[in-house]
Design a protein around this nucleic acid. Structure first.
Lengths: 103, 103
DNA sequence: TTCATATTTCCAAAATAATGGAAATATATT
DNA sequence: AATATATTTCCATTATTTTGGAAATATGAA
């Protein structure tokens, strides 16, 4: 479950760091250094995020680079508003979050 | 943490049911009947969602109606894409999820 | 091949969260 | 006041998740 994958401080920090970094991503070691995590801990969370489909990994020599899967991220955002107000019109501002146009 | 509040099957089911129902919401008993939850269990999750700021409760007689706080929901969606690609332009489609215009 | 570095897997301990029965509270109706 | 219904709180049990040390694996460099 993707939401669950993001619903954990450490994993959210990892994901957001990668979102901010962009498509090139960061290798595990860099993430570890930036967020000060034990290797095993980071590895666990990277696996969770990858399994959830939120991250894409690519090996480059000894390094493994992780980057967000932006498509998956979008799907997740869409999911939350799906069928809002029973599919009908609604006066409430339940779409187009401010940041969604800033990317 | 709002994400964490939604990252639990039962709570997500409750929230989505309420999103689909709209601003009028449903009383606890109706939610309970629809999702077949033990009263104590539902109460626990409603409190989690409320504490997270995702639900608004209004008492009406003996009943307590719960409805989504759509503003909070939007803030949450925005949060995820915040600072995407370091604030710069990015070719990746990391905004405007399909469903966000359908509400 | 040997050594160094990057990352993961294994595993067990610790922490946190979910569940639901039973009792408590709150409101309404008679 | 007595009774009925809606919902919550209390609490103990169970289930799940997180953590990180140590060992294993993988890749590259000398």
């Amino acid at each position: 479950m993707r939401l669950a994958a993001l619903a954990q401080e450490t994993r959210l920090a990892v994901f957001r760091l990668l979102v901010q970094t962009g498509p090139d991503g960061l290798c595990a070691g860099d993430i570890q250094a930036r967020l000060k995590l034990a290797p095993a801990t980071l590895s666990f969370h990277l696996k969770e995020l990858s399994t959830a489909g939120l991250l894409k990994a690519r090996q480059q020599g000894r390094f493994i680079y992780y980057a967000p899967d932006f498509k998956a991220m979008n799907a997740l955002l869409g999911y939350l508003t799906e069928n809002c107000c029973d599919g009908g019109e609604c006066e409430v501002d339940c779409a187009s979050p401010a940041a969604s146009t800033e990317c």
